[in-house]
Lab assay of single mutants.
Amino acid sequence: GKMTGIVKWFNADKGFGFITPDDGSKDVFVHFSAIQNDGYKSSDEGQKVSFTIESGAKGPAAGNVTSL
């Protein structure tokens, strides 16, 4: 299901970062391709987002990331 969290950091040059879930669980990796914004796929530190957890090649990753 959908979770909410805060972007801990995001490196636009490398195209990835981490989200800290609101439920206190482990930080989740986020790749720019998962960000659902139109246009520039980046996110700012401290941005509140909703997301799903997908199982990626390197473990859990955020999917369907949407700014709230």
Rank of each mutant, 00 (worst) to 15 (best):
G1D: 10
G1T: 13
K2F: 12
M3Q: 09
T4C: 12
T4W: 04
T4K: 06
G5P: 00
I6Q: 07
V7C: 12
V7L: 13
K8T: 05
K8E: 02
K8L: 06
W9D: 03
W9C: 10
F10P: 03
F10I: 03
N11P: 03
N11R: 06
A12Q: 12
A12C: 14
A12P: 12
A12R: 13
D13C: 15
D13S: 13
K14A: 09
G15V: 03
G15K: 06
G15E: 02
F16D: 01
F16R: 00
F16V: 03
F16G: 00
G17W: 03
G17A: 04
F18A: 01
F18E: 01
F18H: 00
F18Q: 01
I19A: 00
T20V: 11
P21W: 06
P21Y: 06
D22S: 08
D23S: 06
G24K: 04
S25W: 04
S25R: 06
D27G: 03
D27S: 05
D27E: 07
D27N: 06
V30T: 01
V30C: 08
H31M: 04
H31C: 10
F32T: 08
F32A: 13
F32G: 08
S33M: 07
S33N: 07
A34Y: 05
I35T: 05
I35P: 02
I35L: 13
I35D: 04
Q36E: 11
Q36I: 14
Q36S: 11
N37Q: 12
N37M: 14
D38P: 13
G39V: 10
S42Y: 13
S43G: 11
S43N: 09
S43I: 15
E45M: 14
E45L: 14
E45D: 08
E45K: 15
G46F: 10
Q47D: 11
K48N: 05
K48W: 13
V49I: 05
V49H: 00
S50K: 06
F51P: 00
F51Q: 02
F51E: 02
F51N: 01
T52W: 08
I53M: 09
S55A: 13
G56Q: 10
G56H: 11
G56R: 08
A57H: 11
K58Q: 10
G59L: 04
G59F: 07
G59R: 07
A61G: 04
G63I: 14
G63A: 15
G63D: 06
G63T: 14
V65K: 02
T66D: 04
T66E: 10
T66S: 09
S67H: 14
S67G: 09
L68E: 07
L68C: 09
